[in-house]
């Protein structure tokens, strides 16, 4: 038996909106730790890792570890039917072939339940070791989204370079080139407007903008994004999910031949 009650149901809506175009089907894993997901896109270039810790739920009952295969587009369709202020409860029976999403309005005057068919998915889990990064950039998520969108109108790839000067996002295409440099800026009124660059050593990597733009669909989840870079390792683009967890996107770099 599984029963997870999330008062801030809009978080789950936002999570699904941010992953449904990247991954078609995925197994959601439920354990005492929390509600999690790890899935790759069909070309095995990008990976999403989600964790919503059990403490973040108002009620969290998970009698035994459960893996539920879901079509993320269908799950997103169902969660779209929840109001932004609704409380969302996820329910499933051990060994069952359905999951139920229950939506309660804040005043309890409307209660809806949507039952979705589960599916069997052969999931390939990758072991992601803890890594030391050469550079970690924390910046406003809206700014990062704007940069990715702007550069993708010029080119297909972005070179992200971190030096003492700051972080540089560069692209080139048929019509020309573009460079955007963001410097560390901690003298801001609001902490979410800060740009913080922690550099162990300079690093420069190239990534497909199509994926970066897809990751920025998580922007409504968090005011800040963290970009962790290391030579010849996938970049990690992380958005915190309120106080309860994170959504991390890994993207393999373009490799020089």
């Amino acid at each position: 038996m599984l029963e997870l009650r999330l008062v801030q149901g809009s978080l789950l809506k936002k999570v699904l909106e941010s992953v449904k175009d990247l991954v078609n089907d995925a197994n959601f894993d439920c354990s005492a730790t929390g509600f999690s997901l790890q899935a790759m896109d069909s070309s095995h270039v990008a990976l999403v890792a989600l964790l919503l810790r059990s403490e973040g739920f108002e009620h969290y009952r998970c009698d035994r570890n459960l893996s539920m295969g879901m079509n993320l587009n269908n799950m997103a369709k169902m969660l779209k039917c929840a109001g932004n202020d609704d409380i969302v409860t996820i329910k499933a029976d051990d060994g069952g072939d359905t999951v139920t999403f229950m939506f309660e309005s804040p005043t309890q005057d409307k209660i809806a339940d949507f039952e979705m068919k589960l599916m069997d998915i052969d999931s390939e889990h990758l072991g992601i070791p803890e890594a030391e990064f050469q550079a970690i950039v924390r910046m406003p998520s809206a700014e990062f989204a704007r940069i990715c969108k702007d550069l993708s109108s010029i080119g297909d790839t972005v070179v992200i370079s971190v030096t003492k000067e700051g972080v540089k996002f560069s692209t080139r295409g048929d019509i020309g080139t573009a460079n955007i440099v963001c410097r560390q800026n901690t003298t801001v009124d609001k902490p979410e407007d800060a740009t913080v660059i922690e550099m162990q050593e300079p690093v420069s990597l190239t990534f497909a903008l199509r994926y970066m733009n897809s990751f920025t669909k998580a922007t409504p989840l968090s005011n800040q994004v963290t970009i962790s870079l290391s030579s010849e390792l996938p970049v990690v683009v992380e958005y915190k999910v309120a106080e309860m967890g994170y959504i991390r996107f890994y993207l393999a770099p373009k490799l020089e031949e």
Partner: peptide
């Protein structure tokens, strides 16, 4: 010239 890396080149299946 560059090629798109795959995740399996960096992380091992478990």
């Amino acid at each position: 010239k560059s090629t798109q890396g795959r995740l399996e080149s960096f992380f091992k299946p478990v």
